[in-house]
Design a protein around this nucleic acid. Structure first.
Lengths: 227, 227
DNA sequence: CGCGGCTTTGATGTTCATCAAGTAAAGTGG
DNA sequence: CCACTTTACTTGATGAACATCAAAGCCGCG
C-alpha cells in the first residue's frame, strides 16, 4: 500500500469496508482527486456531464435546481454524503447543481472505475444501493415534511435541522442567507424574515445577523411539529 | 426451462436481460408470487416489514404517506415501475403505502434472492442502481415541478400527466378522486374542484363525473407551464 | 331507502406574495 | 482605504391566493 495514500483513513472506506480489495482501493486511491472549494463555489453545475463519483469529505453544500426565475434547494449535505449518487447511474448529466455553503473538500473518483467495481464487486454494489436508498429517502421525506407545515413551522424545521443535525449546538451561525432558507422551504424571503422576527419577538430565538441562538427550544419544536 | 414459467415473457426480464443466467431466472420464476389487487386494495402498508421485491406488472397504483390527519401522495406508478425499490436496500420496513388505483397485478420475488443476485451479479446490480436513480429522480423532479406552480398550474399538470403519460388519450376516466388530486398537489379538495370547474367554464375541459375530456390542450399546457 | 362519503358552490377569514422603501452589510475599483 | 455600487436584510401596506366553514345535491352501497 502506498504510504502517501490517505484513503485508508477516509470515511469513504467504511462504505468499501469488507468489500474492496487492497488492490482496488490502491487503484482508487491513486486515481482519485481531491478538490477544495471556498464558501460560495460552484462544485457541480446542473447540466454538466457526469465524469466522477463525488463524495463530500468535509464542509457543507446545497443541492439545488435552477428554473427560469429562481432556485429551489433540494437538500443540504454534509460529510459522508454522496453528492452525485442519485444521478450517476441513470443520467449522463447532472440534474442538480451543488454549491459550497462552507469551505468544503470533495473527493472525486472516476466514474468508470466505480462502475467497474459495481460490476465486479457485489458487496460494493449492495453498499451503493443502500446509500442511494438513504439519500433519496431523506430528500423525499424532508420534502413531504416541509410541505405539511406552514411558514413558521417550516422555518422552525430549518433552525432545528441546523441546531440538531449539523452543528449540534443551540447557538450557531446560519450558513444560509434568508433567501436560501426561502428557496428551501418554498416561501418568500420577506416572509422567512418575518417568521424569524416573530420568533425573536416571542423570545424563542435571538438573532445576531447570521448567528442564531435558540432560547426556547421546546416551543420551537412544538412549532416544527404543529405549525 | 420450466414451460409453466412465464418470466421469460415478463417485462421484468428486460432489467435482467444479459445479466441473469437461465438458472437464476428459473429460480426466481419458481419462487415468485403473483398477486391480483382490486381497485382500492392496499398493496403495501407503510411500516410493514419488507419481505419481497415488488414489481407492478399491470395496473396503476399510488405511493403515499399517512400523517396524523391526512395523506400525501408521492407518486403514481404504472407497469414497469418497481414500487418498493427505493426502500428495499436501506430500510427493513416500508416507508410508504401503496394502493391500487385500478385493478393491478404485482409480482413478488423474495428479497433475499434479489440481494443474492446483487451480490453475485454485477450487471444485475448495475441495472438496479440505474432503475433506482430513475425512480428517485422522477419523484424529486415532479415534486419540484409541482411546487413551482399555483393551484391551476398544478391541476393542469395532473390532467396532462394522465392524458399524455398514462392513457395517451385526451378523453379518459380519472382514476383518482378530487381528494386524491388534492393530496398529490398539496392543496385542498375544494380548490381542486374549483380549478376543474374553472377549466370547464373556460372551455378547456369537459367534465362528466370522473371522465375528463381535454378540449383546449394548448391552453392547458400553457397553464401547466406558467400557472 | 337511508347513510356516509364524494362532489360542488358560496361566503368568509387567514396566510402569504407582492410592492415599496429604507437600512445595513459586503464587495469593487480608484 | 474610502467612496461607490451592489446585494442582503428588514418592516409596512395591500391585495391575491387559498384554507376553512357551511350547506346542499349526488352517488353507491349495505
Amino acid at each position: 500500500m502506498d504510504p502517501n495514500c490517505t484513503c485508508e483513513k477516509c470515511e469513504l472506506k467504511s462504505l468499501f469496508f469488507q468489500s474492496v480489495s487492497e488492490e482496488e482501493l490502491f487503484n482508487v486511491c491513486n486515481n482519485k482527486k481531491e478538490n477544495e472549494h471556498k464558501k460560495g463555489d460552484l462544485i457541480i453545475a446542473e447540466g454538466s456531464v457526469i465524469k466522477d463519483f463525488i463524495y463530500l469529505k468535509s464542509g457543507l453544500v446545497k443541492l439545488y435546481k435552477t428554473t427560469r426565475d429562481h432556485e429551489q434547494i433540494l437538500k443540504f449535505a454534509g460529510p459522508f454524503d454522496f453528492v452525485s449518487i442519485l444521478n450517476i447511474f441513470s443520467h449522463n448529466k447532472h440534474q442538480y447543481s451543488v454549491m459550497a455553503l462552507e469551505d468544503s473538500v470533495t473527493c472525486h473518483v472516476d466514474f468508470a472505475e466505480v462502475r467497474n467495481m459495481v460490476l465486479e464487486n457485489g458487496v460494493f454494489a449492495h453498499g451503493l444501493l443502500q446509500k442511494m436508498g438513504q439519500v433519496s429517502d431523506s430528500i423525499i421525506q424532508e420534502s413531504l415534511q416541509i410541505r405539511r407545515h406552514n411558514l413558521k413551522g417550516r422555518v422552525a424545521i430549518v433552525l432545528l435541522y441546523f441546531a440538531n443535525r449539523v452543528y449540534e449546538k443551540d447557538e450557531f451561525e446560519l450558513p444560509l442567507s434568508r433567501k436560501e432558507i426561502a428557496e428551501y422551504i418554498g416561501k418568500t424571503t420577506e416572509n422567512v424574515i418575518r417568521a424569524l422576527s416573530d420568533f425573536r419577538k416571542s423570545n424563542i430565538i435571538k438573532i445576531f445577523g447570521k448567528v442564531i441562538e435558540i432560547i426556547d427550544k421546546e416551543r420551537l419544536e412544538r412549532l416544527s411539529k404543529f405549525g
